[in-house]
Every structure is written in C-alpha cells, then in structure tokens.
C-alpha cells in the first residue's frame, strides 16, 4: 500500500500520460453517432422527395456516370483496407509498414477526390450545378435529385478532405514516434472515422448511381 502511494508521488502529474483506450474509443463512437444522424437526416429528405418524384429521380439518376461511381466505391473500399492494415501494423510495432499503408490510404483518398472532381466538372459543363440556370429549367423532381446529389456527395467529400488532413497529421506523429504500438489510439480513431466515411458512401452509391 505504501509503495503504491510512493509510486504515485514519484511520478509528477506532468509526466504521467493518462491514456485510456476504452474511453477514447467510446468518445469516438459517440461522435460517429452524431455523424450517423447528420447523414441520416439527409437520407430521410432523399427518401421523402424520391417517394414524391419517383419518375423524375429515375430519369435524373440516368445522367450520372455509373462507371465513375463504382470505381470510386472500389477506391474507397480499398482505402478502408489499407487503413485497417495501417492500424494493425502499428499495433504489431511495424512502424514502416504502418506508414506505408497510411500513405497508401492517403493516395487512394486523393484518387477518390480526383475522380469526384472530373465527375462534378462534367456535370458543371452540362449546366447541372446548384445556381446554374439549366438546373432550374429542369423538371422539378430532377432539380431536386441533382441538388440532393451535390449536397450529399459534397458533404461526404468534405469528410474525405478532413480525413486526409487528419491522416497527414497522424502520419507525421507516427514518424516522430509520438504515436507508437503502446499508444496508437489516435490512429485507431482516425481509422474508425475513415470507415464511417466509407460506410456512408456505400449507401450513397445505390441511392444516386444505381437508381435507373
């Protein structure tokens, strides 16, 4: 008992790093629930408007490029794989392997955004973009479909950008040794976030690209 106390006194508060993986993970999951409700609300709006404009939604969805949507799905699923492997590599203390997989995840997320950029700019040149006159001239339901498409994939795209920023920070932290096998929480939470971004996209694919 006395050794317990002396042990506690030995370590000045400033030097003790309190990490509780369970608490950290719980916090991350709670944040993910708010994300779920954020996207869930948009899915609800989509569901209601689709039920009111069944024909227009099908017609408008035919305008989207299925090949690009599916390619992006494969890119994102693969980035989830490299992310989960980066986490387990660090847990096994394979720092170089972890850094490699994390870099791969970053490259794949960049690929996703590049494909998204080409997709959006093609739509833009056809006058299909929020604020463009052509979009207002479309039948009501089709305009709704495209506005929801830009809103939801746009919000998802913002999540991808944020994910890339966090991944870059984590990458440097692993390189500097601030994150390591016995203290890998931040990488793990980043992974959880990234899988949620992937999860949302999995639902966006059938809702927008496969509605024909």
């Amino acid at each position: 008992m006395s050794s317990d106390i002396s042990h506690a006194i030995d370590q000045a508060p400033g030097h003790v790093v309190h990490t509780d993986p369970e608490t950290g993970k719980t916090g991350m999951w709670l944040f993910l629930f708010t994300e779920l409700l954020l996207f869930g609300g948009l899915f609800l709006i989509y569901g209601v408007y689709r039920s009111m404009n069944e024909g227009a939604f099908h017609h408008a969805a035919a305008e989207l490029n299925v090949a690009m949507g599916v390619t992006n799905t494969i890119v994102l699923l693969t980035s989830s794989l490299t992310m989960v492997m980066a986490v387990s590599a660090l847990q096994r203390n394979q720092v170089k392997r972890s850094l490699g997989f994390l870099t791969g995840t970053l490259l794949l997320s960049a690929t996703f955004l590049v494909i998204k950029f080409f997709e959006w700019s093609a739509k833009y040149h056809h006058g299909i973009f929020p604020g463009k006159d052509h979009l207002h001239e479309l039948p009501h339901g089709e305009g709704l479909f495209f506005n929801l498409y830009f809103m939801m994939t746009g919000l998802h795209g913002i999540h991808v950008v944020i994910g890339m920023i966090v991944m870059t920070v984590v990458l440097f932290k692993i390189r500097s040794g601030a994150l390591a096998a016995d203290n890998h929480g931040m990488l793990e939470y980043t992974g959880l976030y990234w899988h949620l971004v992937d999860l949302v996209w999995i639902f966006l694919l059938p809702l927008f690209y496969l509605t024909t």
Partner: peptide
Amino acid sequence: VTPIKATLILMYFM
C-alpha cells in the same frame, strides 16, 4: 446487399 456490406465494415474494419 447494402446493409450486409455495412455490417461487414462495422464488425471487422471497425
């Protein structure tokens, strides 16, 4: 199929 995919991601990746 989509909920099955979501379950796989949640159970194993997450």
